[in-house]
C-alpha cells in the first residue's frame, strides 16, 4: 500500500482536476504543466540524493537565485555567451555543493546548520553581486530549452528533465555509488565498517544537489527570461516537500527517485488545480501547507502499521 500511495495521490489529484476542468486533461495542456514543473523536478532530484543519504539541503533556494542572476548578467542578451555562462554557473554550483558536503562530512557541522548558513551567505553574495537591482536577460539556448517544443509537440524542457532523471536513476539504481549512497543513508556506521568511504559518498550527494540546483535555476531563467534575486526562495520548501510526498524518510536510506518526481508533480498539479479554481495566493498557501502536513502524517501512520 505504502509503495503505491504517491501514485494514488497524484491520480486522485489529476482526477479531481479532470472533473473541475475537463479541458485541462488535453495532452498539450498536460505537457505544459509538465514543462512548468521541470525546474522543480530537477531540484527535487538533487534534494533526493541528499535526503536519501540522510541529510538535507536548505541552500537550494539561494543557489537557484544565484544561478538566475549570474546567468542573466553574464549572458545579458547575447546568445553567443550562453555556453561559457552555463559552464561557469555549473562550476559555481559544483563548488557550493562540494563545500557543503565537505564541511558536513569532514568538519562535523550538522547538515542543517551548514546548508542554512551557506544559504544565507549565497543570498548575501547574490545581493552584493547585483547591488539589489539585478540586470540582464537570457537569450538563445536557455530560451529554446524552456519554451520551444520538439516537433512542436513535446517541450524540450520535458525531454531534458527525462534525460536528467534517467541519468540520476541510473546513478542510484545501476551503479555502485547508488548502493553506497543507500547504505550510507541507512546506517552510516555500518557503511564505514563495510569499507565505504562515507565522507566521499556524502560529499558527492551534496555536490550533485548543488549542480542540479544550478541546472534548475538556469532552466527557470529560461522561463522567466530576466533576473530576480528572490526567485529561488520557494524551492527549499517545495523540493523537500516533493521528496517527502514521495514517501522518503528523513532518517535516510529509504526512498525512490521516481516517487520524488511523483511528489513534485503532485505539488505542481495541486497548484494548477487551485489556479483553475481561482484560489488566490493566500488560499494556495493554506491548501499547500495543509496538504504537506496531512500527507506527511499519512506516511507516519502507514509506517506505524508496517511495524
Amino acid at each position: 500500500m505504502k509503495e503505491w500511495t504517491p501514485y494514488i495521490l497524484l491520480g486522485l489529484l489529476i482526477a479531481v482536476l479532470g472533473i473541475f476542468s475537463p479541458s485541462s486533461m488535453h495532452i498539450s495542456h498536460l505537457l505544459t504543466v509538465l514543462a512548468q514543473a521541470a525546474p522543480l523536478i530537477i531540484v527535487a532530484i538533487g534534494q533526493s540524493f541528499v535526503i536519501f543519504v540522510g541529510g538535507i539541503d536548505l541552500s537550494v533556494g539561494s543557489v537557484i537565485s544565484l544561478a538566475n542572476v549570474l546567468a542573466c548578467s553574464l549572458i545579458s542578451g547575447d546568445a553567443s555567451r550562453t555556453g561559457t555562462t552555463i559552464l561557469i554557473c555549473l562550476a559555481v554550483g559544483l563548488a557550493i555543493g562540494t563545500v557543503n558536503g565537505f564541511a558536513i562530512s569532514y568538519g562535523f557541522i550538522p547538515d542543517f546548520v551548514m546548508t542554512l548558513g551557506m544559504g544565507a551567505v549565497i543570498q548575501g553574495v547574490t545581493y552584493i553581486f547585483t547591488k539589489g537591482s539585478p540586470v540582464g536577460n537570457v537569450e538563445g539556448f536557455l530560451l529554446t530549452l524552456a519554451n520551444d517544443r520538439f516537433l512542436g509537440i513535446i517541450p524540450w524542457s520535458v525531454i531534458f528533465v527525462a534525460l536528467v532523471f534517467a541519468l540520476a536513476f541510473f546513478m542510484l539504481n545501476g551503479t555502485r555509488y547508488g548502493r553506497k549512497l543507500y547504505a550510507t543513508g541507512g546506517n552510516a556506521t555500518a557503511a564505514v565498517l563495510s569499507g565505504i568511504n562515507v565522507r566521499l559518498v556524502k560529499t558527492i550527494a551534496y555536490a550533485i544537489s548543488g549542480v542540479l540546483s544550478v541546472t534548475g535555476g538556469l532552466l527557470l531563467s529560461g522561463f522567466v527570461r530576466v533576473a530576480s534575486v528572490g526567485i529561488g526562495a520557494d524551492y527549499v520548501l517545495y523540493s523537500i516537500a516533493a521528496v517527502i510526498l514521495g514517501g522518503a524518510s528523513f532518517a535516510g536510506g529509504i526512498g525512490k527517485l521516481q516517487n520524488s518526481i511523483v511528489g513534485a508533480l503532485t505539488l505542481v498539479f495541486l497548484t494548477n488545480l487551485l489556479t483553475i479554481l481561482r484560489v488566490g495566493q493566500p488560499g494556495k498557501f493554506i491548501v499547500q501547507g495543509s496538504v504537506i502536513i496531512a500527507i506527511a502524517y499519512l506516511y507516519v501512520t502507514m509506517k506505524g502499521e508496517n511495524q
Binding site: 495566493q281 493554506i286 499547500q288 501547507g289 504537506i292 506527511a296
Partner: peptide
Amino acid sequence: LGSSVLVKG
C-alpha cells in the same frame, strides 16, 4: 515548514 506556509496563507 508546512504550518508556516499555512499560517502565512
